[in-house]
Amino acid sequence: MYTEKVMEHFRNPRNMGDMPDADGVGTVGNPVCGDLMTIFIKVKDNKIADVKFKTFGCGAAIATSSMITELAKGKTLEEATKISRGDVAESLGGLPPVKMHCSNLAADGLRAAIEDYLKKKEAKK
């Protein structure tokens, strides 16, 4: 059902875990629907210096979370904001059609984390 790449990320998720001193945190999804994702970012010089995730959900939800952390790391905030759901799916060699909407939330999660960071930065001023 899933590509080898999806299964590889499911087996060995990258950058999984909490980040107590995160600069931005984004949570998307809903456990009622079966998928909930939290993305943590650390920002330095307008770039994503570190990124971590925690996810409740199916194989696709876990693999896309893992993949977004790889895609986002080292990017400027502008570049990272532009990463789309399609980019995540493509990097994983594709997702089953039914999973494209419900479980492919990672790009939204990353954007939510960046927005959270920008809001906090604005508040500090």
């Binding site: 499911f10 998928d35 959900g57 199916c58 876990i62």
Partner: peptide, 14 residues
């Protein structure tokens, strides 16, 4: 509690 069935199936299938 706290986890989802499809990922459990995949984990066991491995």
């Amino acid at each position: 509690s706290y986890i989802e069935g499809e990922s459990l199936i995949l984990g066991l299938d491995m």
